[in-house]
Amino acid sequence: MVNFGYTMMCEQAGPTQLADDAVRAEQAGFDFAAVSDHYNPWLGEQGHSPFAWSVLGAAAYATHEIDLMTMVTCPTRRYHPAVVAQQAATIGVMSQGRFTLGLGAGENLNEHVVGAWPHRTQRHEMLAEAMEIIEPLLAGESVRHSGTFYDVPEARLWDVPTDGVPIVVAVSGPESLELADRADGVVVVQPDASLRRPGRPFYGQVALCYGLDESECRKRAVDQFRWFGLQWPVMAELPDPRAFDAAATFVTEDDVASAIPCGPDVDKHVEAVRRFVEAGCTHVALLQIGGEHQGDFIEWSRSELLPALHAAGA
């Protein structure tokens, strides 16, 4: 059976609302809640970007059953890997074992705030080395590491959940897929069955724009998500929201609506999710566009969307 998640998108809501929405998502019947970990929003119109780990701490304390995860954290520039391990272990303890650490190679948008953005090849090498530090720390081991990118003279985590913290890695192609071979699962943004690793959790994320007025939803989607079709090689390199705005200048409302279901028709939204399920995803996070529309989306998910997804065999 597929697990359906709710996305706490930090780029479009403040920290208190995000934690409150996680509580509402649990009450609505979502299986997990995923949080984005950004320093900047993709576009200025989104208007937010609080510290994801503070949000996770609040959500872990305020919820009781829903699983939590990062989708995803970059452990190579903005955070040192040893600090990521401590953050993950703390949320794992606070949530009583409900936390999964999602890792990825990151984007210039968020990581350049602490220094130069490295080449893609080096980013993958950095992520691989970061995992060499994070994995044993989360297993409760003492770590001494002197590597190409990171030094850890000596580190140990003093608060670690009894069963550790699962690690899943975001992949987009063969290079990043090699990194995922050592992880507990895989995260994708496109329904690509070739990226699946049999026997391991396979996470996807679907952007939706629910509302009673389809025309208004289409306008909201293009206003806040017109960057969505830029493809990962572009998205990973652009430095700030102004660059994303410029790159998406010629994206039309029809372009966005063709990729993102908009409006109240539950069948449209089920079909968008179905593509990820048919690709083999075991977990699908649903991302509602528009921070001020989260309450309506969560209630609609409780009453219509989640029952429809289960009824459709997803």
Rank of each mutant, 00 (worst) to 15 (best):
K219E: 13
I298M: 06
G313M: 07
R196L: 07
L287Y: 05
P241A: 13
C10I: 04
E111T: 14
M71V: 10
P41C: 01
E111M: 08
E253Q: 13
A257C: 14
E237D: 14
H112V: 07
T73D: 08
T252E: 01
R156Q: 09
I298G: 02
E292Q: 15
A105W: 06
T70N: 01
D245Q: 10
A247T: 01
S258F: 08
W227D: 02
M1R: 05
F32W: 11
S95F: 05
A207T: 05
L109I: 09
G204H: 03
E11G: 00
Y210N: 06
P174H: 09
A312Y: 02
G313H: 07
L138H: 07
A311L: 04
W117F: 15
E65L: 07
L157E: 00
A312I: 11
F276D: 00
L305M: 05
R144Y: 09
G290R: 06
G147L: 13
S95W: 13
Y150T: 02
S301L: 12
E129S: 04
G14H: 00
H119R: 10
G211Q: 03
F202R: 01
A236P: 00
R144Q: 15
T100D: 09
L212C: 10
A62W: 10
G313D: 03
V55A: 07
D265Y: 02
G29C: 05
I298T: 10
A88H: 08
G199M: 06
A58F: 10
I66D: 04
R77M: 15
C281W: 10
G140A: 14
G147Y: 06
M9G: 03
G92Y: 01
D37W: 11
I298Y: 12
R197M: 12
W117L: 11
S303A: 14
S95V: 07
D20V: 00
A246H: 07
I289E: 05
G185L: 03
E135S: 14
L43T: 04
A139Y: 02
Y6F: 15
Y203V: 15
H269E: 15
R120C: 08
T7A: 14
R226T: 07
T76G: 08
M1L: 10
V165A: 02
Q87D: 06
G47D: 00
E107Y: 07
T252Q: 07
P198G: 13
P239N: 02
A105G: 11
G29T: 03
G204T: 00
E253A: 03
W42F: 14
G106W: 06
D192M: 15
V165E: 08
G14N: 00
L138I: 08
S258Q: 15
Q205Y: 06
W42G: 04
G280N: 06
R123W: 12
V2R: 12
G140Y: 12
T70D: 05
S49D: 09
Y39E: 05
G263V: 14
S301C: 15
G263P: 09
V113I: 14
P264Y: 08
Y6G: 05
G57Y: 01
V72P: 07
A89W: 02
A59H: 11
A130W: 05
P136F: 12
H269V: 11
P198T: 14
D163T: 02
